[in-house]
């Protein structure tokens, strides 16, 4: 078995120590850092995502794999930084104003990073202007909004409206999620997508990525 396949398998098992050892070994064997990232770590994470989607593994397994992925990325990042880490896209995420719940938002952030996205996490209790300002300043393609309260869900609508008011809706897409949020709610407020869990949010964000001019 190739060492890159071993890295992928080790990551699938959430074996962070094993991933660390194998990535170092692969570097010693002169494998290109980018190949280790793509064909080892990300290949393993892709399998984890599929198995999670199919309910073959569960959230703790995914998060242990995410931790292992980070161990590997930390080793590769200094070597890749000359050309920059390859980025699937940039996403601004946060929990909307009035709401302090962040577990779901944090999980989405972890999953997006594992899928190669550059994630700007604004935290909790974030006002609409801050979401849109950050997306503009950081040239993000997607804004991800989380809410766990029916009383704070309307803030999502304000963000969508603000994106439109600033004429950004062609290049900045808005995806929403959280326990009381639904596909119907996303449609009602004019959001571009709805993620029912962290893994699904990654799929939806991928589909929403707009190539920048």
């Amino acid at each position: 078995m190739s060492i890159l396949r071993e890295i992928a398998q080790s990551l699938e098992q959430g074996d962070e120590e094993g991933v660390g050892v194998l990535v170092r070994k692969a570097l010693d064997e002169r494998h290109a850092p980018l190949a280790i990232l793509h064909d080892g770590l990300m290949a393993g994470m892709d399998v984890v995502g599929l198995r999670f989607r199919d309910r073959d593994i569960f959230l703790p397994d995914v998060l242990m794999a995410a931790r292992a992925m980070q161990v590997g990325v930390d080793l590769l990042e200094p070597l890749l930084s000359r050309d920059g880490m390859p980025v699937a896209g940039r996403v601004v995420i946060g929990t909307v104003h009035g709401d302090m719940h962040d577990i779901g938002k944090n999980l989405v952030g972890i999953m997006l990073r594992c899928a190669g996205f550059d994630v700007i996490d604004l935290g909790t209790d974030v006002r609409p202007e801050r979401f849109v300002d950050a997306a503009q300043e950081q040239e993000a393609s997607v804004i991800g909004l989380s809410a766990l309260l029916t009383t704070t869900m309307p803030v999502m609508k304000e963000v969508v409206a603000l994106v439109r008011a600033r004429g950004l809706d062609a290049r900045v897409k808005v995806i929403v999620g959280g326990a009381p949020v639904s596909e119907a709610w996303a449609r009602e407020i004019g959001a571009d997508g709805y993620g029912y869990d962290a893994a699904n949010a990654v799929e939806r964000v991928r589909a929403l990525m707009v190539p920048r001019a």
């Binding site: 959230l59 998060l63 995410a66 577990i103 944090n106």
Partner: peptide, 18 residues
């Protein structure tokens, strides 16, 4: 503590504690 664990890149333990 949950937030500290997330910040310390221990997401599995953070989510389990949550």
């Amino acid at each position: 503590r949950i937030q500290d664990l997330f910040d310390g890149n221990m997401p599995a333990l953070a989510a389990m504690l949550d």
